[in-house]
Computed example of a mutant assay.
Amino acid sequence: MPMVEKVMLEANDLARYFDVSRPALQRLIAREPRRTLRAVDGVSFTIPKGQTLSLVGESGCGKSTVARLVVGLYPPSDGTVAFDNQPLSVARADPAQRQRMQMIFQDPYASLNPRWRVRDIIAEPIRAFKLVDGKDAILARVGQLLTQVGLAPADGEKFPHEFSGGQRQRISIARALSSNPEFLVCDEPTSALDVSVQAQILNLMKELQRSLGLTYLFISHNLAVVRQVSDRVGVMYLGRIVEQAPAETLFTTPRHPYTRALMEAIPDLDMTGRTRIPVGGEVPSPISPPSGCAFHPRCPLANDRCKAERPLAQPAGESLVACHAVEEGRG
């Protein structure tokens, strides 16, 4: 009998809308209705314990909003999030559950308090959750964490401005690990770093996942990064997941036309001479998204059904694909 994977996080029809209307008086004078930005518009996924799900897509597709929803920084407008089979609102209200979930932010220059020494930055979650008693024990734990991420215990005496970008991101990882979490949300943790440093941070995160049994939700627009770290990948377009698949399946046999377009943007280092078909048009506004499939204005396979009916995710081999063309065999 096959083992059933334990689900660490489950999102079901998750949505987040923002009211971007002008002030009421201006709207009244101009006789215009309220304007709603649909940042996340019905996203569903599960992340098994110990695995990595990555969300990829163009800027503005809703990836970072999903990250903030699953750690409780934004309340959902619709849908649900469950953490270890508990509703997220219940889990966030319990300090013992809350410490199991942490977030690594995109910009290591903005996410660390410049007025605090590194030892205090890393020790803050330890003190907040009362994980260790006594100043000496806390400093010893901070030293262990710094060593774990490839820094020296003596670095705890320094301030953030004394470190490079990659070192600052290591400090951010040490702070995230200080509460002994099981689930980490990584919001583009390497995008502000140059390529050689990116590789070091990714290798560190993979090693920490193996040694500590961590579960990751990894947000990125860099397909090369995603391929390196992911067990499964979700491709987002205009607030929706259009394709989910195991990482290697997605890169070797992409099904959705948008996923294929992303793959076409990857440089052909092997110089195979394959024909590239660039995607025309621009990303529509999430304030007034197209009817039906949001990708249809740019899709070479679109027909009248695509313009009128929103596609639902359907199995296609090992993938889940929200595309009428794939469902009908037009792809």
Rank of each mutant, 00 (worst) to 15 (best):
G156M: 13
E162C: 13
S164W: 10
S164I: 05
G165Q: 05
G165L: 08
R170V: 03
I173L: 07
E182M: 11
C186P: 11
E188M: 09
P189F: 05
V195N: 03
S196W: 03
S196L: 01
Q198T: 09
A199L: 05
N203C: 07
L204S: 01
L204C: 07
K206W: 01
K206A: 10
E207T: 12
E207R: 13
L208N: 07
L208Q: 11
R210V: 15
G213A: 13
F218S: 00
S220I: 04
H221Y: 07
A224C: 05
Q228S: 09
D231K: 01
R232D: 09
V233R: 12
G234W: 06
M236N: 04
G239Y: 14
R240E: 14
I241Y: 00
I241D: 02
Q244W: 03
A247M: 10
E248M: 12
L250C: 05
L250I: 10
P254Y: 09
P254H: 03
R255M: 13
P257T: 01
Y258C: 04
Y258A: 08
A261I: 00
A261Q: 09
L262I: 12
I266Q: 00
P267M: 11
G273F: 05
R274S: 10
I277A: 12
G281D: 11
I287L: 12
I287Y: 11
P289V: 10
